[in-house]
Design a protein around this nucleic acid. Structure first.
Lengths: 366, 366
DNA sequence: GGCAATAGTGAATCTGTTC
DNA sequence: AGAACAGATTCACTATTGC
């Protein structure tokens, strides 16, 4: 394959990702996000307690004969990726325990420098049906620079801090898996790709470690979550994908994505630029009244709202954040998302009340 | 060093952990918990924003000049550990992103089989003072069996489920770091060990994957958190530690631990651990009679009970499980929960009869 | 249409004992 | 060693059906 002199921006290229990466100019992309095959080694079928069969990942692209073959594959694509990456660039790789220790080890062997490992905690993982293990409720992302010497890596620290309500963003991120209307389905209602990632995950990755106009390369593009997030956030993407079906689905999907304009991007980046709303304002405006009960998301724990915007639970009183943390035995808690009120018999997050207040106050909602 | 023929139970041995492990009889311990030195490569001292120095991990034993040396060290101790581990035993290793990808890769290379990776989410991690990275708020634990073929690993599923308020325990655990009165300090108030682990973490590990009386080996004993948790929970420990200071502190600490009594250590039994009752026993005891009809949970399908404990449906006869599977067109079926009998016009699960029988036989109900 | 009940599903290395 | 068989086991959320 001949070497390209310009980048094929915002395109999906079909073919082997190593060959395609080698056809791109060296040191040309700002970020790489990679979701390589996990090398799942499944035994027989897995049945749920109700005897239905789990639709497992048994695709041919996830089959490797041995760790040695998987390692060779990993070395090859990580090496090709390193060539196209700018010296100031960074790479993200996502995986599970089946492959992430192979990948992490190889990243280090090749000379990449791990900046953080990030844990994606799933709100709704598939349970362990046989009761033989802990529920496998997370995946791991590795964020690396090209080498130890490269210190000037893009990291939008303040944006992350604001996303986390003023506290430093941690290495554990809580997000739901990709489902519902976000999940691409074919005409028969079957999922197009077995492992489509949630766009929220990619949004956070891109918000944290790229700037507007940056070029993001994804060598295992699949159905193009990286491309969708990049387009939405005003970044360029290059998608490499071996399967034509996936590539086609990705193109259709990305074409439909609404690109945010510069202004709204600024807003997304700085949620904190919205004035803080004290919980007391919810009481003042009468959205909740003193004496009202608020609950955790299961309705198990109840606290009482007090006139001054504090809440009480048993003998303790304090802010929604303090009491939320206390009842969980946690150090900290975002009371806005922890507490719920009853509306027509259903539990609704009090964060909805904050959003409503912001609307009334003419602030653009996040 | 000569080979010991009996285990040095509940002792702290001072010396090189590899030599000491090689002096123990092979296949003799039930569990290994290891907190190996981290390959922390801090370039120079780390300063807090106010310029006070962070007491980072810079003890002499924590310096390795390359991944190669670290890998050799890792291979050596993991190999020695595998020799002393029973075939049905398991190993836990804890680490951070600096070393866990080396360790995980080596575990797999040696033949260990990863059962889960567990994320310890810290409620109170040290912040990232420079604001250049995500706050490193977790550590990773790997839980492995000796090989892929070893399936019968101790896992107290029900106990874990109880601990998690009735939901199966996930792979992400939220716990504070070791601080306050739990943290061992010397006369000058300086912490005795740089990376003392919280006892709660070890308690969960031991509650999940050992039984009372099991032998737990910790090759990097430090100040003995593993020993303290083991003693408290009625497990035996063997601690290996190179530094005499740490070993001495560990012995003092463990001597003060209050051992819990046996009753409080009883775990919620799983159904699996109860003696098996054949369906024929239900007939023998007269709880059902030959000729009685049993039904699925809607009363749609009926089968007839026969004197030998088999049942018949149309032209087919067999066990409650076989016929249950057959009428559903399923691969397998738990006949005890599938079939029901009529009592006062209502359908009641035949599993109730099994429970009744177990009570009469003096077996503890689940 | 509204609400309740039921069914479906997601990167999963998912059994133990006896013959 | 392999086959046969008993029998234990799920959480959060979405989509569909039923009343």
């Amino acid at each position: 394959m001949t070497q390209k002199t310009t980048l094929p921006l915002d395109q999906v290229l079909v073919g082997d990702c190593i060959e395609l990466m080698n056809s791109l100019p060296e040191k040309s992309v700002d970020l790489i996000f990679a979701d390589p095959p996990y090398n799942l080694q499944l035994g027989g079928d897995l049945l749920r307690p109700n005897n239905s069969k789990v639709d497992a990942v048994d695709d041919h692209w996830d089959q490797f004969d041995s760790f040695r073959h998987y390692d060779e594959f990993t070395r090859d694509w990580l090496t090709a990726a390193r060539r196209v990456l700018k010296d100031t660039g960074a790479i993200w790789v996502i995986g599970s325990y089946h492959n992430i220790y192979r990948v992490g080890n190889m990243l280090q062997d090749i000379g990449y420098w791990i900046l953080n490992d990030i844990v994606w905690r799933k709100t709704n993982p598939m349970p362990n049906f046989r009761g033989k293990r802990f529920c496998n409720a997370h995946e791991t992302l590795l964020w690396c620079s090209k080498s130890e010497e490269q210190k000037a890596i893009t990291f939008n620290y303040e944006a992350m801090k604001q996303l986390n309500e003023g506290l430093q963003m941690r290495s554990d991120w809580l997000m739901p898996i990709c489902s519902g209307s976000e999940r691409l389905k074919d005409e028969k209602g079957k999922k197009v790709h077995p492992t489509q990632k949630p766009e929220a995950l990619l949004q956070r990755v891109l918000m944290a470690t790229t700037r507007q106009g940056d070029v993001v390369l994804d060598p295992f593009f699949g159905t193009g979550t990286t491309g969708a997030a990049a387009r939405r956030l005003g970044r360029h993407f290059i998608g490499l994908e071996r399967e034509d079906t996936y590539a086609e689905a990705a193109r259709d999907r990305i074409a439909k994505v609404q690109m945010l304009d510069g202004d709204s991007l600024e807003l997304t980046e700085s949620k904190r630029s919205l004035p803080r709303i004290p919980f007391g304002a919810v009481i003042e405006r009468g959205l909740l009244a003193p004496g009202d009960k608020i609950y955790d998301n299961r309705g198990n724990v109840a606290a009482m709202v007090r006139a001054d915007g504090s809440i009480s639970h048993k003998d303790n009183a304090g802010s929604i954040h303090q009491i939320g943390a206390h009842v969980q035995g946690a150090q900290a808690c975002n009371g806005w998302t922890f507490w719920h009120y009853k509306c027509d018999g259903r539990l609704v997050s009090i964060d909805n009340l904050r959003t409503q207040l912001r609307k009334e106050m003419g602030q653009v909602p996040a």
